[in-house]
């Protein structure tokens, strides 16, 4: 760098020095903010293998006295991890499948089919985006009570098989529109029905958009709290999110406050976050792309 600087004329040198300084400043700011964002994560990892008295030590220690892997086995013994995990997985996967099917069918109709009510119905779909979940929550809850579906997974799953999720219909429709329509016409000349085009032409070409829907739905369902706490009562139906909350309450005795088993709580919280983090690392491209499709083009 310095040899390069010496070979430049004086004014270019000044400018370069200025550039180097501003860039150093940029990296300093980025590193500071980045560290602030990462510290809570790091602390959770460290705390999960600490002894109880080390977790709230003053000052904060970053290297445990001894790495206590047994925290993990103990936490899994006292916390119903695998049952809650299975419940969460079952709900999440069911919702993803139902949502992919129902929203992509609707999105195809809006993107590729001609029918008289197309525009008004699409406007209707978009206008439902504005209605907060809470406005329909109470009557829906009463409906499910009448059907005897309380304390089953059905209230969490069934609405998503019926195209609920206007945002995803919009997102998929935008993507389907970008598939060249010549492919449609060619398939139609070959005698392909609309369902054939949908299943054999559009869907295979829309894997990135479908992956985006899958990822967003996964995160939303995995971390959902309000619906599970309203609909699932018995402990063997609990998802990870509510199981953690109950574990916390039972450990602390009172409603909230310091708990005696922080290390275990950290283990369980980390294990709950892990699938989301793993998904992000393996499917980062689809994450960014999905955010961009919905944010920049929306």
């Amino acid at each position: 760098m310095s040899t390069q600087l010496q070979s430049l004329p004086a004014w270019r040198q000044r400018r370069s020095v200025h550039m180097v300084m501003t860039h150093t400043l940029y990296y300093l700011i980025l590193a500071t903010v980045g560290t602030m964002l990462m510290v809570p994560f790091l602390w959770m990892v460290v705390s999960s293998v600490k002894a109880e008295h080390e977790i709230f030590s003053i000052p904060t220690t970053w290297i445990p006295e001894r790495i206590r892997w047994e925290n993990y086995t103990h936490a899994l013994e006292s916390f119903p991890f695998f049952r809650s995990l299975l419940n969460t997985l079952f709900i999440t996967v069911s919702v993803i499948v139902g949502r992919l099917l129902s929203t992509s069918l609707a999105a195809y109709a809006f993107a590729r089919m001609r029918f008289r009510l197309r525009t008004p119905m699409f406007v209707l779909v978009l206008s439902t985006l504005m209605i907060p979940y809470h406005v329909t929550l109470i009557p829906t809850y009463i409906l499910f009570t009448r059907l005897g579906w309380i304390d089953t997974f059905l209230p969490l799953i069934v609405p998503n098989w019926l195209g609920l999720g206007a945002f995803y219909i919009f997102l998929l429709r935008q993507f389907f529109m970008t598939v060249p329509s010549e492919m449609n016409d060619a398939a139609r000349i070959d005698g392909c029905s609309h369902f054939g085009i949908f299943a054999r032409v559009i869907l295979p070409l829309s894997i990135p958009a479908l992956a985006t829907v899958t990822i967003f739905t996964f995160l939303e369902q995995w971390n959902d709290f309000l619906a599970p706490i309203i609909y699932l009562n018995s402990p063997d139906k609990h998802t990870l999110a509510i199981a953690i909350q109950f574990y916390r309450q039972s450990a602390s005795g009172a409603g909230w406050g310091p708990v005696r088993t922080w290390a275990h709580l950290m283990v369980v919280s980390l294990l709950t976050m892990a699938p989301c983090l793993l998904l992000f690392f393996f499917a980062q491209r689809y994450f960014i792309q999905g955010v961009v499709i919905s944010g920049v083009k929306g």
Binding site: M113, R118, I138, P139, L143, P159, G163
Partner: peptide
Amino acid sequence: REELEAYLFLLPWILGFLLFLVGPL
């Protein structure tokens, strides 16, 4: 035919819209 087919594609959404949106609203 296409018109009818389109409503078939939209059937899940229409059902959901009536059952979980219009009705509850």
